[in-house]
Structures are given as C-alpha cells and as structure tokens.
Nucleic acid binder design. Structure first.
Length: 249
DNA sequence: AACAGAAGGCCGATTACCTCA
DNA sequence: CCTGAGGTAATCGGCCTTCTG
C-alpha cells in the first residue's frame, strides 16, 4: 500500500511522491495518491541501520495495480505519457452531484465525521479528553473491501452512538485507519523521530491530535526495538547452538 | 560561570480496548 | 454466543536535555 497526501508545500516531501505528476504552482489544493506496494529502491535507510529487517519484506511487495489518485483541485490534467490514475469522485463537489443522484448520504457525511477544528489540531488539543471524538475515520475515503467498509461503518455508528456517553471516564480505543497508519509508516521510514514542526504538520495532514502522532511514533519505535531484540535473541541462540555443536561449551 | 527549576521529549512498563480465530 | 490471544492506542512514571532566570 502506498499513500501520499499533500496539502501544499512541504519542507520535506515524501519520496514516493516524486513519481506522481507534478502540479503547477497554480494548482493549490488537496491531493492524495494511493497505490499498492513500496518499490524497494525508494526506501531510505533510517538511523537504525539494519533494523526492521522483518518489515522490509513487506515493503518489497509490489502490485501492478494502477495508482489511485484523488484530488480536490478544479482539475489536474494528466501529463502525456502518464497512465491516468483511477479517480475518486467527491459527491459534495457540485460538478459531481448532478451525475450522482444517490450520493446524498455520502455528501451528508462528508468530512464532518470527527472533524477537528484548527484549535484542536494544535498543541492545545492535548488538553482535550483522550476520549474525544477525534478518531480514525476522517481520512477514510472509501477505498475498502466490502468487509472493511462494513466494519468501518459499524465502527462509525458505534462511535456516534457512544459519543454522548463516552465523555465519562471510559477510555475509548481509537483505531487509526489504514490510510493514516500507512502515512505514518511512510513518515517513520523518513525519520523515526519527530520534531515539533513535523509532528504538527503530520497531525494536521492526518487530522489527528499531535499527541496521537507522538504516541504513534513512540509505540512504533518500541515495536521496532522489540522486533530487533527478538532477532538478536534468535541470532544469539543460533550462535550458542553453533558453539555447543562444535564443543566450545 | 554555576546552579536550580521548569518544560518538553523519550523510554519502558503497563493498561485498556478491539479484533479475530 | 463465549473466550482467550494478539495487536495496538493510550497512560504513567522516571530520566535526560535544554532553556531561562
């Protein structure tokens, strides 16, 4: 899975975006690309060096599926020589509505689900309840299998139903969407730690609270370390077995 | 220059919730 | 339906670094 999202200029663009058609400076807007498979050649070495060996296998999986691009630009022409990506249509855009009679439901849902205000998106949001409505579905653009979509819709319903009662003391588990996780994963490959600016930028792009981004990176580092420890232990065991077999012990 | 306190970040351990077999 | 295991978001407490007065 390959995901790229851009809200304009970024100080450090994600590398896999290089393959997507460039937009002119006039084309300010929202653009997001989604494809499958990480080309092995694009992976940058992070600070951990040989760490994450187990993850590399996953990243080498390559799919022949054409990339999926969605944007909120007035139009973004596909340059000659580029394969036209599949497009996702947004029912809440006027020019889509006329040809999408059955789309009022989706249009009504739009982006209001768990939307964060800009105030909530900055550090001040850390004060807000961890159980607040900020959750996993802001970035859900419906690129799902039927099963996944059903599960997500159920989750949305459940979340809405519990909105009123969850302001209590219960800690609501918020699962990040696949898109959000993929984006964070890509970001983690670029740099496995975040400075405050990067944290805020990511949080804004993914419509998460900065604290959530911070926690995700902490947990991700912990997972990486745990994985590496397991690998080290296996190596040590093999080494000890080797020593034993050859009578060194 | 040396020091204390505050603030912020990271880590390890743990909890709590969710999903799935 | 129930249950246990595994995954993971979130919390907590401690330590370290940086900044400021």
């Amino acid at each position: 899975m390959e995901l790229a999202l851009s809200l304009g200029d970024t100080s450090k663009p994600f590398k896999f975006l290089d393959k997507t058609p460039k937009l002119s400076s006039k084309d300010l807007g929202f653009c997001m690309g989604l494809g499958s498979g990480f080309p092995a050649t694009t992976r940058s070495q992070d600070k951990l060096g040989s760490h994450e060996s187990n993850y590399q296998d996953d990243e080498r999986r390559v799919s022949s599926d054409p990339p999926l691009q969605l944007d909120l630009l007035p139009f973004s022409p596909v340059p000659r020589g580029h394969q036209a990506p599949s497009r996702i249509r947004f029912p809440w855009l006027a020019d889509n509505l006329e040809s999408e009679p059955g789309s009022t439901d989706a249009a009504g849902r739009g982006f209001d689900v768990n939307r964060l205000s800009m105030d909530d998106a900055d550090e001040g949001a850390a004060i807000s309840s961890p159980n607040s409505a900020a959750s996993s579905f802001q970035m859900d653009f419906g690129i799902r299998s039927g099963r996944d979509r059903k599960r997500d819709l159920e989750a949305i319903d459940a979340e809405r139903a519990s909105d009123d009662e969850e302001n209590g003391l219960t800690r609501k588990k918020l699962r990040l969407s696949k898109e959000q996780s993929a984006f964070l994963e890509e970001s983690f490959k670029e740099h496995n730690t975040l400075n405050p600016k990067q944290k805020l930028a990511l949080a804004k792009q993914l419509n998460l609270r900065p604290r959530q981004v911070e926690v995700w990176f902490q947990n991700r580092r912990a997972r990486t370390k745990l994985k590496q420890t397991e690998v080290d232990c296996e190596s040590l065991e093999r080494f000890c077995g080797f020593e034993r077999d050859f009578g060194y012990f």
